[in-house]
Nucleic acid binder design. Sequence first.
DNA 1: ACGAGCATGTAAGAGGTTACATGATTAT
DNA 2: ATAATCATGTAACCTCTTACATGCTCGT
Lengths: 176, 176
Amino acid sequence: MARTNTLQYMILGLLTRQEMTGYDIKQTFDKEKAEFWSAPFSQIYPELSRLLKKELIELVPDKVENSRKKTYRISSQGLKLFNDWLKIPLTPEITKLNNDDFVLRLHFLGKEDQDILQPLMILRKKTINVELAQLELELVEVVQHPEQYGRELIIKKELANKKADLKILNSAIKRN
Amino acid sequence: MARTNTLQYMILGLLTRQEMTGYDIKQTFDKEKAEFWSAPFSQIYPELSRLLKKELIELVPDKVENSRKKTYRISSQGLKLFNDWLKIPLTPEITKLNNDDFVLRLHFLGKEDQDILQPLMILRKKTINVELAQLELELVEVVQHPEQYGRELIIKKELANKKADLKILNSAIKRN
DNA sequence: ACGAGCATGTAAGAGGTTACATGATTAT
DNA sequence: ATAATCATGTAACCTCTTACATGCTCGT
């Protein structure tokens, strides 16, 4: 699914933490995000070039002479863009189309980012509740059709997943 | 994500049930599958042309004269291809990369397809157990880093989701 | 010396989105 | 009449995957 430049934000997000090479970025994707996201070198390197051209990242001057490594850091413009992205409200309409943006953002937020985390989670709760209501309706309908048993299982799975998500969100919101 | 011709199989799958136009197919995607999948007209119509050229589907002759509608039905080759696709075993390695193939297939299976359903679900259970073990390890590590609180929430969410999936699979497998 | 892992890229092609374009039919 | 919905497509562009290509460095 061609989404809105996910890779760009993933790279910027990693670079907010530390300077990295393309190779490091790939490693981190594979290790930290393997559950839900990754990208091959053939996507990462060209994206780094583009980000450099757009001046959202900068090359860190080599400490060692003749290094073939290219270490990047985020620029102030890049940082601004990334922080703005974190704060775009994920309304139910947006989330429906671009389902894992919530998870993608969450990845870059720590305990210290409560000011972004809290509204994000509260909005997510609302979105989930909208989806739950929809799914409940679909379930009532689908159980009457044994030839749609597979779909029934999917809907049940989705319902159970979203309820579990709500539970986690609630405990995270309460605990503040 | 450029997966292995998902749209092709989605269309073939719908056409195993009844003859449809491109417009009907779009409607069904939006209504039945909105939770997890969709496709725009600009993808559906060219794909229908390709399927027709490959003789996996056929044009149903118009009943009404001058109709601008194009109604399609699945061909015997198309049916064979689709049924083979349903049966490709989804090993943990495959599923890791192409996460929702399981759900996509499930959608087309009814209570009468137990011969395909049961092995599919048993294999899925195995895959989930592999993923659960991995996630448990990651969780132990991540709770020690408050700056990765968001990631901790993601992992908890994933764990809860997969456990819920297991529960549903178990009840569906037992019930047979 | 040699293999594993480090390191960076290009090219071709498939998959997917957004915008554009056109016209018929049906309900109000 | 006119707006909504039915109905089918094209074009430009971006994203993503797979395969290819090259060379360095470090441990054994």
